[in-house]
Amino acid sequence: MDWLIILASGVATGTVLLYATVGEIFSERSGVLNLGVEGMMLLGAMSAYKATAATNDPWIGLLVAMLAAGLVSQVHAFIAITLQADQVISGLALNFLATGISLVFGEGLTSLRDVVPQLPKLTLPLLDRIPVLGRIFFTNQSIMVYIGYLFVPLAWYYINRTRPGMHLRAVGEYPAAADTLGIRVYFLRYMYVFVGGLLAGLAGATISLSISPGWFGSLTTSGQGWIAIGLVIFAQWNPVQAAFGAFTFGALRRLVLDIQGPSTILGLANPFFYNTYYGFFLKMLPYAFTVIFLVIGSREANRKRIGTPAALGLPYIRGQRGL
């Protein structure tokens, strides 16, 4: 069992969670809860794979995936923002819709394994020579991982230090105040739900074109969309904390796979050594951790009363008294 490999692949699988989580952060910061992340990711994974198979260009696949998930997110936007329906129900419905579309159009894609090209992997010169960290973060990683490194600080800066970011926060905190100042509340909410969709699509494409290439039906995403929604709370709606959470969870997922390999760990007999019963238990662990982190995260959020966008989940109805 090689700890560096576990951590490096944790970064790779964590990148998927990262994009989905930051996407959901954008949506929730504008006040719209979108529980359809899992479905949108699956749609992204499927359409990326299908478009790449058709065009032989994974970058076109990536683009198609983002657009497909972005478009389907607008169904939720329309129901939640314009029709002012319950966002939880609408998000769950979106999840079924997007999953259904993906499974129908994904029929037959599984057999294309080894035919569809993948996104490139690279090793960054010089940076890969940093002891330990170089092998974890900068050696033979997918290009999407490196884009993720750049994306996180940019997302943080955008939200916290720019005018549009300030408007985004205002719309999610106190839409009535934003409205009186001429900020287009409905438009911005549509826009950031769309951004959330784009990034969920990107996350899906990152799976099927790079991190674990191929199309395996609903197993392709295997519940990572739900983990992403949990991570948003754990990250307190902050992209930088989201990156920490995503990489930690990525590493956990890999750890529970690898821990069944060696017969001894640190000189002790490994109880998990090829044990079928423990195998099921181990596979359950990342999800159990999601629940535990969610409980801790939301307790913190509740205690401090900060982090949660005040208008999250509430439709904005013009003329109704604020908050």
Partner: peptide
């Protein structure tokens, strides 16, 4: 009368 201010900003 009701202030239109975003508390977290």
């Amino acid at each position: 009368q009701h202030f239109m201010l975003v508390p977290s900003q």
